[in-house]
Design a protein around this nucleic acid. Structure first.
Lengths: 196, 196
DNA sequence: GTCTATACAATGATAGAC
DNA sequence: GTCTATCATTGTATAGAC
């Protein structure tokens, strides 16, 4: 019952995705996004720290998910099983996500260096959180580092395959298979190290 | 000879590092940097694509170095030995680098989100190039991915330790030891995977 | 508590003169 | 190569409207 239309953030996101798809990220100004959402530039920046953040909203949840999953993993879990839980926990986020926007994102992202930088930085943040949690749990920072990298690689590779495959089937299944493949690669790694 | 003082880029870098150290990255404007270097803002942006790039100039060299090292590795090299060559090849870049600037960089970087994003993006670019070259050489994209991540982790961890240790000894030595540690972690990885 | 109006500082692009 | 000048855009700050 307020005087304002509700869901300002949602409207801004919708407007942004539309305009980015129409004329590209760089060619779209913050003012144009706000206008299409029936708001002003000032209000846009009250909701989002910057223009990039419109598309990466809610990534902080990935950090808490991955850390919680590691911390709550059963004591009897083997290291790679802990990693598996953590990475699979990330997949659930995308269930609620709007499919149309996800589809657009994949085409918008490569068009702007600014956006790619932000995307990479978010990935880095999640990787670091996973690394930290695993280091505590496993007691070995280097092993935790390798596992964190492998897990995130499985996640992002799986995500890319999922989006490209027209989204039949669940993301979690694809990522799980990806983890299997990396697990074999790791277990075979001992035999392909230095000859010395 | 010309009317202008030579080495505009060097003077701009010098001025930028000084000012960033004095008053922080965000509080320093492009105009101030240019002024201290005896130039104008326009000229600054003719030499550097943006303000961040002043500090990350020459990182493209890392990409060519790492790729060349992989491609030129002897046929008889084991996979991890190829990786070792590639990562060690990165270390030589920092020999020529000016020590005072390197020292300052470590304090400036954490003070600005903008700078960290760029730094992470550069690391990502090098990692991807290494990944690509290793994938071709090893014929297994996933194995190459794990190796690329491990190698870059060894490099950046080693670099951090090197800078912190007041720079006695060579970077290559520290990174090499780091690689040894990761190699053991990898060779032991087979035994710590899923219990299933 | 959310939105608007206005003014402002800084980045980065562009065009033309030396 | 550099300079002056001008410009659009991002993002902030302030003060006020509903």
């Amino acid at each position: 019952m307020s005087r304002w239309e509700p869901d300002a953030r949602g409207r801004l996101l919708q407007a942004a995705v539309e305009l980015f798809a129409e004329r590209g990220y760089d060619a779209t100004t913050a003012a144009q996004i706000a206008e299409r959402a029936g708001l002003t530039k000032t209000t846009l920046f009250r909701h989002f720290a910057d223009k990039r953040e419109i598309l990466f909203q809610g990534q902080e949840e990935l950090v808490t998910r991955v850390v919680d999953a590691v911390n709550e993993a059963p004591t009897e879990d083997a290291p790679f099983d802990i990693l598996r839980r953590a990475v699979i926990a990330l997949c659930d986020v995308h269930v609620e996500e709007r499919r149309d926007i996800r589809k657009e994102l994949v085409t918008i992202l490569p068009s702007s260096a600014e956006l790619q930088e932000r995307a990479v930085f978010k990935r880095f943040a999640v990787t670091n959180s996973l690394h930290g949690a695993l280091a505590v749990r496993l007691g070995d920072a280097r092993q935790a580092g390798v596992f964190a990298d492998v897990g995130m690689r499985a996640y992002y590779d799986g995500y890319a395959a999922w989006v490209e495959s027209n989204e039949n089937g669940s993301l979690a299944k694809i990522v799980d298979a990806e983890l299997d493949a990396f697990e074999s690669a790791l277990s075979g790694a001992g035999s392909i190290l230095s000859s010395t």
